[in-house]
């Protein structure tokens, strides 16, 4: 590094020093401290006491709720992510057509994204109300005598959460749409000349060309799904019930930290989640070589 470059670096660092300070104090320090706390019994208001790996061992061998929260989170991620991708692409395809008033439709699909999570949860609690909700009313019109109990009955709680999540997938839709609009028109013109039908164009042009966007949304969706918290927290009033069906991993972590004051235990949970997200993301990136098309490669 030349003298001039070093000067520039120092000046740059000086300019971002307020942010750096905040980053180190509010992110890096807690991040590192949480590693230590995860090896302690730490009740927040009394000093932490080192216990080695006991929190991790207890989590894996003695805590059935830990396993339940993992299953719930995997169930939610495993269904909401593929459905979200499928629905996002279909809606983006529809929004990519030339129809009068398209800007209005695009706005409508994006609107749920700007609804705060809390309002989102309360709104859907009413929409999916077993007796007075509009969804059950419509189901009733089809002649179903016992419509689902949604958030009140264990078996229907997670499907309810998934429906809620799909409603708010406008951000992914906009990203898919941007990806689709980036596809060179010449590719479709050539396909038209070759006599390709609509489905063949989707399969052979659109999907490969937006595969990098799908990868992006998949990774972001994975992270969000594993950190899913606000909606189940509000709907279940912080309990994760009925029958622990809405006890997502982050909700359980929150309860351990701030309801039961087991901060050390919660830190161990947070680290396991961090490692799990990294491993899954790495796996997705590793396999993406086989299905993501990068132009020019």
């Amino acid at each position: 590094m030349s003298k001039g470059e070093r000067k520039k670096l120092i000046i740059g660092l000086a300019f971002i020093s307020p942010w750096l300070l905040g980053f180190f104090i509010f992110y890096i320090y807690p991040f590192i401290a949480s590693i230590y706390y995860s090896f302690t019994v730490y009740h927040i208001i009394s000093p932490p006491e080192f216990i080695g790996l006991r929190n991790y061992v207890d989590l894996i061998t003695r805590d059935p709720l830990f396993i339940i929260s993992i299953k719930n989170t995997l169930y939610y991620a495993g269904i909401s992510l593929p459905l979200g991708i499928l629905m996002g692409i279909i809606i983006a395809l529809l929004l990519n057509t030339r129809v009068k008033g398209m800007a209005f439709y695009r706005t409508i699909f994006f609107l749920p994204v700007v609804v705060p999570f809390a309002a989102h949860a309360i709104l859907w609690k009413w929409i999916l109300n077993p007796r007075y909700g509009i969804i059950n009313y419509l189901i009733g019109l089809l002649g179903v005598k016992h419509p689902p109990g949604w958030f009140q009955v264990a078996g229907w709680a997670k499907p309810g959460l998934i429906i809620m999540a799909l409603w708010a997938s406008g951000q992914a839709i906009i990203i898919y749409l941007a990806g689709m609009q980036d596809i060179p028109k010449t590719l479709f013109e050539v396909a038209d000349l070759d006599g390709a039908n609509w489905f063949q164009k989707i399969k052979n042009i659109t999907l490969p060309m937006i595969s990098n966007v799908i990868l992006f949304n998949l990774v972001m969706g994975l992270i969000q799904a594993f950190q899913f918290f606000t909606q189940p927290f509000i709907i279940s009033k912080g309990t994760g019930r009925p029958m622990d069906s809405m006890l997502m991993y982050n909700l359980y972590l929150y309860k351990q930290a701030f309801k039961f004051f087991n901060m050390g235990y919660a830190c161990a949970m947070a680290w396991l989640l961090f490692v799990a997200i990294i491993l899954i993301t790495l796996f997705v990136f590793k396999t993406s070589k086989n299905w993501v098309f990068y132009g020019g490669e």
Partner: peptide
């Protein structure tokens, strides 16, 4: 039980 839960959720 399920009926009670549903009623409670209403």
């Amino acid at each position: 039980y399920e009926e009670l839960l549903k009623l409670r959720g209403e």
